[in-house]
């Protein structure tokens, strides 16, 4: 099948990140997440720790590959990372309160 809007001048092969591999990992992690509450229980320390770790892993994959932060200029990573640091401080402060 040819793409009629593509010309040889325009055609420039990019090396793309392994999007389908990232999708497979994200889908698998989501499946695991769904099984954690029925198996381990809703609000146990083990369940909370596992779910938080999986969520961080998923967010890292989305930001790194889908949002291209793993390949982009480092200053974008710094910009994106700032609220993560502030949010972590806020969450730790909440945890100390309760």
């Amino acid at each position: 099948m040819t793409d009629e809007t593509m010309t040889s001048d325009e055609h420039e092969e990019h090396v793309h990140p392994p999007y389908m591999k990232v999708f497979s990992i994200l889908a698998a992690l989501t499946m695991i997440e769904l099984f954690i509450p029925p198996i381990i229980g809703d609000v146990t320390w083990l369940a909370v720790t596992l779910l938080v770790l999986i969520a961080i892993w998923k967010m890292k994959l989305i930001m790194g590959y889908f949002m291209h932060l793993a390949f982009d200029a480092r200053i974008l990573l710094l910009v994106a990372g700032t609220p993560a640091i502030l949010a972590s401080i806020m969450v730790i402060a909440f945890m100390m309160e309760y």
Partner: peptide, 21 residues
């Protein structure tokens, strides 16, 4: 999640010149 994959695929297709895709 699937819609996120189709989004990156769209960008990749634009970059490679496959506009219809």
């Amino acid at each position: 999640i699937i819609s996120s994959v189709t989004m990156v695929k769209a960008l990749a297709a634009f970059q490679d010149g496959f506009i219809n895709r």
